[in-house]
Design a protein around this nucleic acid. Structure first.
Ligand SMILES: [Mg+2]
Length: 203
DNA sequence: AACCAGGGGGTCT
DNA sequence: AGACCCCATGGT
């Protein structure tokens, strides 16, 4: 439950790039990486008296090297971001044209990109392609799903979980996911699973 | 199917 | 200061 929660439409390349950088990272660190990329490679724009670096284009990223990207704290993600940037910059992949595809086809195409799997693809679909049914499952979501819907199902693989969320949450599953995510973060990390009780609020 | 590498800031002790 | 946590993807 979170009054006023909204999903905003975000730029395709920037979303794709930052979600490729997001694997195995916490939000604070992803923000740091994005800032590094912007300050190092982003064009400068002046808005009144503010000077900002915009997020670098795929062409700009493609013109860097894995070594330079690593200096932005990307670690092993550097080569994935570089490879994907090259695909986008060369025109082999047209992010704009992908918008015409069905959810299924779009996900398949996104997953073909280096560093993109089911979770990252769903994030990009939800935030950049207006696919409000896309349901990204990260560890936070998985925890809350198991806790609330499968209290003692032991054998429950990713495929079954995904099938359940599509069936159960349907066409606006992405919004449900955002509420669940907010709930999971708000009620504490995995350590709190056993210690939580009185402060619990549902949905 | 199960397991593991990989990078570095965050959080706790 | 040092220990441990975080946690998607791709490859074995
Ligand atoms: Mg892929």
């Amino acid at each position: 439950f979170c009054l006023g929660l909204r999903i905003i439409r975000q730029p395709k390349w920037e979303s794709l790039a930052t979600f490729i950088c997001s694997s195995m990272k916490q939000v604070a660190h992803i923000r740091q990486i994005s800032r590094n990329l912007r300050e190092r490679f982003g064009e400068i724009r002046k808005i009144d008296s503010y000077v900002v670096h915009i997020f670098p284009s795929a062409e700009r990223i493609a013109a860097t090297s894995a070594g330079e990207l690593r200096k932005c704290a990307l670690g092993y993600r550097a080569k994935n971001l570089l490879a994907t940037a090259r695909l986008v910059a060369s025109g082999d992949v047209d992010l704009g044209k992908l918008a015409a595809l069905s959810d299924i086809d779009l996900r398949v195409r996104l997953c073909e990109l280096p560093g993109v799997g089911a979770k990252v693809a769903n994030c990009v679909m939800l935030f950049a392609y207006e696919r409000l049914g896309a349901f990204p499952i990260d560890v936070w979501i998985e925890r809350v799903l198991r806790e609330r819907y499968f209290p003692r199902a032991l054998k429950l693989n990713a495929r079954r979980l995904e099938a359940f969320t599509q069936q159960y949450f349907g066409g606006h599953g992405g919004y449900a996911q955002q509420y669940l995510f907010h709930h999971a973060r708000k009620t504490g990390g995995r350590r709190a699973v056993g210690a939580r009780n009185g402060t619990r609020q549902k949905r």
